[in-house]
Simulated scan of single mutants.
Amino acid sequence: MWKIYIFSILLTFPVLSYGAGLVPCGGEGEEPCQMCHAITFVSGLFEWLATILGIIYVLIIIVLGLYITSSTGNVNAMTKSRSYIYVVTTGYIIFLAAWMLVDLGMRILVDEKTYGVWNDIQCVAQPTAQRYARVTASGDNNNVLSNSEINDRVNVINSPDSAGTEAAIEAAAKANGLTDPEQIKIFKALISQESSNCKNKTGPSTSFGTAYGCGQMLVSTAKGLDPSLAGKSDAEIADKLRNDDNYNLALSAKYYSQLLAKNGGNTELALANYNGGNAANIGSRDCPGLKRWQCEWDSPGCYGTSNTSCTPNTGYKETRNYVDNITNIADRL
């Protein structure tokens, strides 16, 4: 029984020493957990195990040494004790050798000048995406709706004259999985931004083509959403998108719903995809932790600094303004 007590006490010391800090995240006053902390947990567990093995090894050697000393004349007992010492020592050496091999491998793979202990892991908090200010990095707020313009859009959406259109927009949203009231507001704001509530039926020509109808749908996008369009000419599809509001709203709601699911329910990322295409949500090279459309700079080393000699990311300025416009309209509905 005394052996069990000693072993329990032995296990308690490492637990008290390391248990509280195995996962230093997610608690009060601590940073949010990330993948790095899972590695930190494994590292802490390894240190905990190393401490236990070290203490056990020392105690076993002491006990066996005392046993050998007290067994003078008992050849069989002394032989067994020596064999135990050999086995325990061999195991501990293997453990230390594994540690050293990992250390050697890490020193080969990384810059030794900036390298410390291989299992000394430091987690760095990652920047989080935030809604951007209404003025871009260049100071140009072109295409951003003013407060009065936002109020005008909201008044149009809520006016009795728009009741029929708004009912059709809401019906299309619900029919395509947008049942959450907040997402219905977002979709109404999207249609307002795209076509002024189905009033502007033909958008400007772009490198992607011309967009048509309530949701400013591209012919190529419509083909991907509706298999029944196979065999129809681009002119026929464009005509249907431009003149059949209910059809256009249904496709637009379906497309936005798919983008929302693709982006894990993140409204801003879904809107960025709708306006800026799939590439908009690729990770930014110049703003670590952000997407391309979210980064206001087109130069490395500018994000989060006071550097004034940086090139603004004008390629996605429209997308940043687009997301702001829609979310601001929806907030007031």
Rank of each mutant, 00 (worst) to 15 (best):
L45H: 03
I68L: 04
N74F: 06
K262R: 10
M1C: 09
V75D: 15
Q34P: 07
Y212L: 07
L269T: 00
E47N: 11
N119M: 11
K188P: 05
T311H: 01
V124S: 12
D234A: 06
L178W: 08
K3Y: 13
C310Q: 01
G213M: 05
V88A: 13
Q193D: 09
A98I: 12
P227S: 12
N321P: 01
R332M: 03
D244F: 09
G177D: 08
A189Q: 06
P300S: 12
S309W: 00
A20H: 03
S146F: 08
D161H: 09
R107D: 05
R292S: 00
E170N: 15
G164W: 06
L64G: 05
T72K: 07
R285C: 00
Y212H: 12
T51D: 12
P160E: 02
D180N: 15
L11M: 15
Q216H: 10
A38K: 14
T179P: 10
T221L: 06
A211Q: 05
M100A: 15
Y256C: 02
V23D: 07
R82Y: 15
T51P: 04
L271M: 09
D331S: 13
A253N: 08
V144P: 02
T79A: 15
Y132S: 02
L11A: 12
P300R: 08
Y212V: 05
L241W: 02
N176C: 10
A280F: 00
F187Q: 03
D226L: 06
F13G: 08
N275W: 03
N197F: 13
G29R: 12
Y212F: 14
L66Q: 13
S284C: 01
Y86D: 06
V58R: 04
N76W: 14
C287V: 04
C302T: 03
L333W: 02
Y255T: 02
P127Y: 06
A261S: 13
D180V: 13
Q258V: 03
L333R: 02
V110Q: 07
E166Q: 13
I85Y: 07
E182I: 04
A171F: 06
A20P: 00
K262F: 04
A133K: 00
G29N: 15
L66F: 14
S252W: 04
D324N: 15
K199G: 02
I62G: 06
S138L: 04
L59V: 13
D331W: 01
K80I: 11
G21C: 11
M78P: 04
I282Y: 01
S205H: 11
N243W: 04
L269Q: 00
A330V: 05
